[in-house]
């Protein structure tokens, strides 16, 4: 195997060129965030001037920009709102989708095929078609401007149900039968046998759901009305429009505070994120 790998290796200049191109790409991916952090530590004059080699990095880091960012906008409030919405959506959403996925994978009932088809069909519909009446319903329920509006509409999704169903289909029926013979109820079978077995899939769906909820923009833009209920993406959009503060360095400090923790968590849990976000997308 080693010999064949060596035989397949292209000539050295090609190898070097490919590395150069890919790592140039890596730089293009990293520079925007690094530039954001660099700008956040600059003075107004440094940031506003045309860049030169000597002003790429701040001369003396202006940590005060971070204090000014917290003064100019209620960042901690947006953090609480976003975290609450994302955590609730993740926990409740995975639970609902797993319950429905179990029913579709392992239980027999009238209307199974039709209901599954309908649930899957909802995946195809763009949010622009249903957001108007979903919004009106939230208004009627008194959800507008509260965390319910950001959680309840996402309790179940066609995609989540399908994903959990596929995972649960792979659980051997003999395991479930054994539980039933021991006198377990269907819910006990789900909780004590199915849930532990498909836990990795639930975690992957959980990360996917968390990232989706954390970054969701269009729906919060519709259902959030007031300053105190804003989520981070809404606040970022307002920041970007210059609503809070006019200074680029302070804006960049605020943006760094908003995206920094997510980036840090991603860098630590990279493998889990890649599997959760991308491989969940494979739907297999």
């Amino acid at each position: 195997m080693d010999a064949s790998a060596r035989r397949r290796r292209p000539p050295l200049p090609v190898v070097l060129l490919v590395h150069a191109l890919v790592y140039a790409g890596v730089a293009v991916m990293a520079v925007p965030l690094l530039w954001m952090v660099a700008t956040s530590l600059k003075t107004e004059a440094e940031a506003g001037a045309s860049p030169t080699f000597s002003t790429l990095l701040p001369n003396a880091p202006q940590w005060v920009n971070y204090a000014r960012a917290f003064e100019s906008a209620r960042l901690e409030r947006y953090y609480v709102n976003s975290t609450l919405a994302a955590v609730l959506t993740t926990v409740l959403g995975v639970a609902h989708n797993a319950l429905a996925g179990y029913a579709f994978a392992k239980l027999r009932f009238r209307g199974r095929r039709v209901l599954l088809g309908v649930a899957l069909a909802t995946m195809m519909v763009p949010v622009q078609v249903y957001f108007i009446f979903a919004y009106l319903l939230c208004t009627r329920l008194g959800y507008v401007d509260s965390v319910q509006a950001l959680v309840v509409p996402f309790l179940a999704s066609g995609f989540g149900i399908f994903y959990m169903r596929q995972a649960i289909l792979a659980v051997p029926d003999s395991l479930l039968e054994a539980g039933r013979l021991d006198g377990m109820s269907e819910f006990e079978v789900f909780w004590h046998i199915v849930r532990p077995t498909v836990w990795p899939a639930m975690c992957a769906l959980g990360i996917f759901t968390f990232v989706f909820s954390w970054n969701n923009f269009f729906w919060p833009l519709i259902v959030v009305d007031s300053e105190r209920s804003k989520t981070l993406p809404l606040a970022l959009a307002d920041l970007s429009a210059g609503l809070y503060v006019d200074s680029w360095p302070v804006q960049m400090a605020a943006a760094t505070i908003m995206v920094g923790p997510m980036v840090a968590v991603y860098l630590v849990l990279q493998r889990a994120f890649v599997q959760g976000v991308a491989l969940t997308g494979m739907k297999e």
């Binding site: 890919v22 790592y23 790409g25 890596v26 991916m29 990293a30 925007p32 965030l33 530039w35 954001m36 700008t39 940031a47 506003g48 001037a49 045309s50 860049p51 990232v211 954390w214 970054n215 923009f217 981070l232 993406p233 970022l236 959009a237 920041l239 970007s240 680029w248 804006q251 960049m252 943006a255 908003m258 995206v259 997510m262 980036v263 991603y266 860098l267 990279q270 994120f273 890649v274 976000v277 991308a278």
Partner: peptide, 28 residues
């Protein structure tokens, strides 16, 4: 390489658009 290229997938598009507006500023 995979970590770097995948990074924007987990960022909010709002944050990405914001930072890029600054990168694309004609002067600064």
């Amino acid at each position: 390489a995979r970590a770097a290229f995948f990074l924007p997938t987990i960022l909010s598009i709002v944050a990405i658009g914001f930072v890029w507006r600054w990168l694309l500023d004609p002067e600064a």
